[in-house]
């Protein structure tokens, strides 16, 4: 493990196997760390270091995968040290605000009632709380295009279901602890489902292949069942 100063931030770097390098910016989720990760990702996209194949931004880390024939952990570490001191932090204002339509409750959100009961709220309260905040895409993982969104109110934070569902419909909006997210594909999963979006979040034929990318700002807009059907038909 190596400690170094990266664009004014103190980071740890360590290997992930023979061809991975992890840059760790800290151990807790916060916006400063997130902005630094987005800043490094933006920099590496614009000025790729030789031998880098791809990178994966996460909550407090950015992992770089590289070609061991073209570079090494040591060479990349040197390359990171010599990055400009004031790495452009990807500011909230620079990112687009994406508004995702969601039909809450009913068949689309089988756990909405449960979440409401947890805090003696009405389902309308839960919808209001969930759709009145701007979220951040901290990470895309678990499944192609699955966004882990940070910034949800603790007033509706609900642990995962005790037994995961074997199949969750694509578009389902869920809550797990203080995180919220959207299942882009039909997969198994344990999040509490409160609604569903007619949008497709994973678009394998497009570049990039996802509707959301790390660093985006997201809001949810409640829609009716009719609008859901209409939007879903439009997108097909």
């Amino acid at each position: 493990m190596v400690n170094l100063d990266l664009g004014g931030a103190s980071v740890e770097i360590f290997p992930l196997g023979e061809s991975g390098l992890v840059v760790r910016f800290g151990e807790t989720i916060n916006l400063t760390v997130h902005h630094r990760i987005c800043g490094l990702a933006a920099y590496l996209t614009e000025f790729p270091l030789p031998g880098v194949i791809e990178f994966v931004p996460a909550y407090t880390t950015l992992t770089i995968y590289y070609d061991l024939w073209k570079t090494s952990f040591e060479v990349l570490a040197e390359g990171l040290k010599s990055l400009p001191l004031n790495l452009p932090e990807a500011r909230a204002a620079d990112r687009p605000l994406i508004e995702i339509p969601v039909c809450y409750g009913g068949e689309f959100g089988p756990d909405l009632e449960y979440v409401a009961q947890q805090y003696s709220l009405t389902t309308d309260d839960v919808i209001e709380i969930h759709s009145s905040v701007t979220y951040r895409v901290y990470l895309i993982g678990f499944a192609p295009g699955f966004p882990y969104l940070g910034g949800m109110s603790t007033r509706i934070a609900t642990p995962r279901r005790e037994s995961p569902r074997l199949s969750i419909p694509a578009g389902s909006v869920g809550i797990a602890g203080e995180q919220t997210g959207v299942y882009p594909l039909e997969t198994p999963g344990g999040w509490q489902l409160i609604g569903c979006t007619p949008w497709k979040l994973f678009l394998p034929e497009q570049t990039p292949p996802t509707r959301l990318t790390v660093g985006d700002q997201v809001r949810f807009r409640p829609i009716t069942h009719e609008t859901f059907i209409q939007l879903r038909n439009d997108s097909q």
């Binding site: 194949i53 791809e54 895309i140 993982g141 192609p144 990039p208 292949p209 996802t210």
Partner: peptide
């Protein structure tokens, strides 16, 4: 399928 892991692509 390398190059798309930042989008969660397996």
């Amino acid at each position: 399928r390398t190059g798309f892991q930042q989008y969660g692509v397996i």
